[in-house]
């Protein structure tokens, strides 16, 4: 038994280290002076340690602007979509109306439609609205989403009806019930969904690549992809850019890990 446990741990540690190695190399190479990540055999520590790549990115290559764009869009989309999705999810969970189940089923089954199908017409629509290359081109398609409604509904189903009825007897309006009772009770799932949305917007690439055409509007992934075109031979610089892009989501995830995991597990639950 002891031996078996030892082998198991050895295996987990080796595969764990291999899984972590790309991150290790990314961080270490980002602190290397120019050229040090292009040597054989490869180095796994910077010598000397330098912040010159980071300075270059922020001072000359305008990555600060992309960072702001990413942050602003992720926060805005998260805020608005949480509001919209939570109202709809609550309605699906706690109101009775004609055609509710059919409507919900229609929404759920349309989740299989890949987003790419909508991209061309959506682009034409947003172009005719004159919002291509503005923040709105990202915000508008992210106003609400089916998965978010689903997640909130699943959670809100568990809220006892007696709470809602009691509030109604006390004279609370429908909106007050939503705002003062449902939302506070849904806090864990709102954090989960907020985190998922934030990461989704922050990490998204294809849609921002299509609708953000001016370098001042780029989000971090688009800016990074663009930078890669000119700096294919500068691994140290590109690794610094990658660290800047990845670090915020890792920190956010570490802080809210518990909520993220429960979100994944809930999405695995069957209807």
């Amino acid at each position: 038994m002891k031996f078996k446990s030892l082998i198991l741990h050895l295996f987990l540690i080796i595969t764990g280290l291999l899984t972590f190695l790309p991150f290790w190399w990314m961080v270490m190479a980002s602190f290397m002076p120019e050229g040090q990540a292009s040597v054989y055999p490869p180095r796994f520590f910077p010598n000397p340690f330098t912040l010159v790549q980071y300075k270059l990115l922020f001072q000359r290559l305008n990555l600060g602007r992309a960072f702001f764009n990413s942050l602003f869009l992720a926060v805005t989309v998260t805020g608005i979509s949480l509001f919209f999705n939570s109202m709809a999810g609550y309605a699906f969970a706690k109101y009775r109306f004609k055609g509710k189940h059919q409507l919900f089923k229609l929404l759920l089954s349309s989740m299989i439609i890949p987003a790419q199908v909508t991209m061309l017409p959506l682009f034409l629509m947003l172009k005719s609205m004159g919002v291509i290359n503005t923040y709105l081109a990202i915000i508008i398609p992210g106003l609400a989403n089916i998965f978010g409604i689903f997640l909130i509904r699943q959670y809100a189903l568990g809220i006892p009806n007696s709470l809602i009825e009691a509030a109604r007897i006390d004279g609370a309006s429908d909106f007050q019930i939503y705002y003062k009772i449902i939302l506070p009770l849904c806090k864990p799932i709102l954090i989960t969904l907020g985190l998922l949305t934030f990461l989704g917007v922050w990490n998204d690439f294809m849609w921002p690549l299509i609708v953000l055409t001016d370098s001042n509007m780029y989000t971090l992934p688009v800016a990074l992809a663009n930078l890669m075109g000119e700096h294919t031979r500068d691994p140290e610089l590109m690794m610094a850019g990658s660290v800047i892009t990845v670090l915020p989501v890792i920190l956010l995830f570490l802080a809210l890990q518990k909520f993220y995991m429960s979100g994944i597990m809930m999405s695995g639950l069957k209807e």
Partner: peptide, 11 residues
């Protein structure tokens, strides 16, 4: 959870 573009560049 990490950004696919950044990860693709690293790889």
């Amino acid at each position: 959870i990490t950004t696919l573009v950044a990860i693709s560049i690293v790889w």
